[in-house]
């Protein structure tokens, strides 16, 4: 689970080690990446919205 989150984070940032990626593709299940990816995207939206709300003060 933690490694899935780490990989999704890396994908969001756009940088991932080749070896880690190969492992993800060989051992990971696509479904888990998709679910975590969607959840993280929503978190990102919430985060930006939170920053905007705080900044608007």
């Amino acid at each position: 689970m933690w490694s899935v989150i780490k990989s999704v984070l890396a994908a969001f940032f756009g940088v991932q080690r080749d070896q880690q990626r190969r492992e993800d593709f060989e051992h990971g299940k696509p479904v888990s990446f998709i679910i975590v990816g969607i959840a993280m995207a929503m978190l990102l939206v919430a985060l930006v919205a939170l920053i905007a709300t705080l900044a608007a003060g």
Partner: peptide, 14 residues
């Protein structure tokens, strides 16, 4: 509203 304006500005800059 101001909050929406800020949200869309930040997201766009990203």
């Amino acid at each position: 509203p101001l909050v929406a304006e800020l949200f869309f500005m930040y997201a766009t800059m990203l």
